[in-house]
Design a binder for these strands. Sequence first.
DNA 1: GTCGCAATGTTATAAAGTAACACACATGTC
DNA 2: GACATGTGTGTTACTTTATAACATTGCGAC
Lengths: 156, 156
Amino acid sequence: MSALHDHTHCIADALTRADALCTERGARLTALRRRVLELVWSSHRPRGAYAILEDLSQQDGKAAAPLTVYRALEFLVEQGLVHRIESLNAYVGCAAPGAAHSGQFLVCDGCGDAAEIDDPGVGSAIVAAAAERGFHVQRPTVEVRGLCKSCQEKPR
Amino acid sequence: MSALHDHTHCIADALTRADALCTERGARLTALRRRVLELVWSSHRPRGAYAILEDLSQQDGKAAAPLTVYRALEFLVEQGLVHRIESLNAYVGCAAPGAAHSGQFLVCDGCGDAAEIDDPGVGSAIVAAAAERGFHVQRPTVEVRGLCKSCQEKPR
DNA sequence: GTCGCAATGTTATAAAGTAACACACATGTC
DNA sequence: GACATGTGTGTTACTTTATAACATTGCGAC
Ligand SMILES: [Zn+2]
Ligand SMILES: [Zn+2]
Ligand SMILES: [Zn+2]
Ligand SMILES: [Zn+2]
């Protein structure tokens, strides 16, 4: 994700969509969960549970327990509002909640940003490769490490 | 991987190929590293570092330290003899060491087996999707959770 | 209201991974 | 052989990530 964009808009947009989705589904986006979602969205870099915990504690003054964050994250992942990046043990906001998808990520080792894509070619290639071997796909994980456009241009 | 195969052959074969590769490269497959490789290969299920550590300690009587195992695994991964399954924090033997590849896995949630594939369709779809967005791929991670053939047939 | 369940708080613990430093052991040099 | 050098291993302590068990709160259905 380019560093030059109005990220406050990303955050506001994510929260609005989350509100709408949860209302529609009858899921309870409580104050805590909403705040954790906001913190996950603080950037496009996947954020660890303990980093979020720290943010949260800083906001509130008193320290929260890890479980508080993990439970909120679990809810958010279930609702498809947040994805977990397995190779980083970290979480990032979903770019397109609502539609069913499992998340494919281009994770830049330069700036740390994780760009979510939903490439039909990748998806179908995986399903095809699996089908060929009689494997039934439930949850594909695709996390591509490399360098984003802007990090290739300015090395270091 | 079918449960009905001569797995001792898998192990022996993996060790033989590892010996050959390391000799060829001038890499030192020490007794410890070789033993860890053997333990990783004890099945086709990805095995956690601490599980391997336990195996190791059991063999030797005295308990080894985690670092012992992690260092051996690091070497084995560098040499491409073992892959790390990010979504499981576990390690599995490489089915085709020698050739350069990053590993694509069909991980069965029924039996736990991880079948390694190297599907050109999946690989090229990822590179194409990345290129479209100006992203330079270094290390793709593909870990597909689901059910293998035999686990679909006999549910539960 | 009050019953019941879902969400949160609290405390403790497990699992996974790393840092720092000392020692052992090979290999090559003189 | 004595020695220097680099790589692998042992040991201890520690950090980071994640979960278990149980108490408490608070909202919604009736
Ligand atoms: Zn943004
Ligand atoms: Zn998404
Ligand atoms: Zn086998
Ligand atoms: Zn492999």
